[in-house]
């Protein structure tokens, strides 16, 4: 059953991806990206990652959609037709993709319970966290305690993003004309 859902979701994701590639109205693209996130959240649920699914839905379909829409409102929403031949990107993508596929050949099969991933530290989390931490949601236990430091880093990343956005967007915007002929451009116009 879950395999069927899995396949359906993956197919839908692929279709959405291709649509994302082809559509040039950015509003539509943003909406599709939101849908892509929702679909992936569904996939995460199928693969038992409920926390991730929740977060992906909130972030991918929620926040980032809002941010994209806000940015589009500020910056316009039409995309030009790509001017140059996509040969180089195609080659890069092709090589990267093939390399990855090549890498999967020796990868343990999907869903195998004996895969090494599940038997090194994961065992410890599942078996010992009830004694060591004492909360049922192992993801939270790992997130906030075993790897709490990563989460602190994550919090800092979010904070860093806020600092960055404040530095970029706080304060008055310069008019386009003023920005266009600013004397700082280039070196010839030194003061």
């Amino acid at each position: 059953m879950s395999t069927v859902v899995d396949i359906v979701l993956l197919t839908l994701l692929a279709a959405t991806g291709i649509a994302l590639l082809r559509i040039r109205n950015l509003f539509a693209v943003v909406m599709l990206a939101g849908i892509y996130s929702l679909l992936s959240a569904g996939l995460f649920t199928v693969m038992d990652a409920v926390d991730v699914a929740f977060t992906e839905a909130a972030v991918g379909a929620g926040i980032s959609t809002v941010l994209f829409l806000a940015a589009l409102a500020l910056a316009g929403h039409h995309e030009n037709r790509p001017g140059h031949t996509p040969l180089l990107p195609l080659v890069v993508v092709g090589v990267t993709g093939l390399a990855l596929v090549y890498g999967t050949v020796d990868m343990p099969g999907f869903g195998g319970a004996d895969n090494p991933v599940h038997h090194h530290v994961a065992d410890h989390y599942l078996e010992e966290s009830p004694h060591e931490i004492g909360i049922p949601n192992v993801v939270t236990a790992v997130l906030a305690s075993y790897r709490g430091y990563d989460t602190m880093g994550e919090t800092t990343v979010v904070f860093a993003a806020a600092v960055a956005v404040m530095l970029l967007l706080a304060g008055r915007r310069r008019s386009r004309a003023a920005a266009g002929d600013d004397g700082e451009e280039g070196g010839a116009g030194h003061r």
């Binding site: 990868m107 343990p108 895969n115 090494p116 599940h118 994961a122």
Partner: peptide
């Protein structure tokens, strides 16, 4: 990919 082969970080 390293993680999937070893289970460790």
């Amino acid at each position: 990919l390293l993680y999937v082969m070893t289970g460790s970080l």
